[in-house]
Design a protein around this nucleic acid. Structure first.
Lengths: 150, 150
DNA sequence: CGTTAATGGTGGCATATGCCACTAAATGAA
DNA sequence: TTCATTTAGTGGCATATGCCACCATTAACG
């Protein structure tokens, strides 16, 4: 097979997913820029907000994110005073996370912008299509790739 | 609306996309680990391979990636001797990229592992479903979110 | 021509993510 | 109780990505 006829990267599920994520990330980030938050940060603040002073491990699990990666991502938010952490009194290994009042205000501000981006996205691709896409992505997130231990 | 009844992050198209990308990335990376390449690097080598000594800008455009981000990502691959760059003789602003022989060998090795991951993914989600997903992701990558300039 | 504008990349800085080695704390077994 | 094991996070290091300011080159225009 000549190099010229090799299929493009369009065949790789992972590459396509990353590519779409870059594209959509740029769009959401653009819209949210006035808040000073990236879309990832808004998502993280929101996740913390809807949790009940969630433990770091719990957040990482919901987001399917490495625990240490979460720790890193949290740092700028703590530095900027949007988030604070405290040890769980019943198990001092566990560190819980909550929004500060300042963080709550910032989240409100960011959510307004998020709505704009979200709305615009759904206008462009269609509400149904968007819902289907999210469902498909949710399925992927739930997949188990382990070979069944026979 | 009480905090307890707020919808999860499942509603955000962008967050879901990133989450699925983390999940799938971890899987592909795991499978490709023996090659010493990350899935992103394999994808980049492949993109360079199928291009005709592509210019950096061309690669960045196909991957919907920031040009400077591409430059950064390329560095470890150049350092490890998989890739080399050279100025286009007709326009010295343009820097073209190609695989070294070593890079070609490494790509072959990585592609074998990639096939394993790709195959496993399609076994789990179904070949049709995977194709539909890639099509949907390709559509997203092609979207234009600009408001029509009236 | 020569000045101006547009194009293609680089480097610095910042966030996003992951892996690994290591520490502290809680659990379980002897 | 005491020691091995498991659990929850941290810090260091590396890649992934983006934005912005800046440089070199080329194209455009008067």
């Amino acid at each position: 097979m000549s190099k010229d006829t090799l299929p493009g990267l369009t065949l790789c599920n992972n590459a396509m997913l990353r590519r779409a994520a870059r594209k959509l990330g740029q769009f959401y980030d653009d819209v949210m820029a006035p808040s000073g938050l990236k879309a990832t940060q808004q998502g993280l603040l929101y996740q913390i907000h809807i949790g009940n002073e969630p433990a770091m491990g719990a957040i990482a699990a919901s987001l399917i994110m490495d625990l240490s990666a979460l720790g890193h991502t949290l740092k700028p938010l703590i530095r900027d005073g949007y988030v604070e952490t405290f040890a769980d009194p019943d198990d001092r290994r566990i560190k819980r996370v909550r929004l500060t009042p300042r963080g709550l205000v910032k989240l409100d501000e960011a959510m307004k912008l998020w709505s704009v981006a979200q709305q615009r996205f759904e206008d462009v691709v269609g509400k149904d299509q968007a819902a289907k896409l999210r469902a498909a992505l949710d399925d992927i997130a739930a997949l188990d790739f382990d070979l069944p231990a026979s």
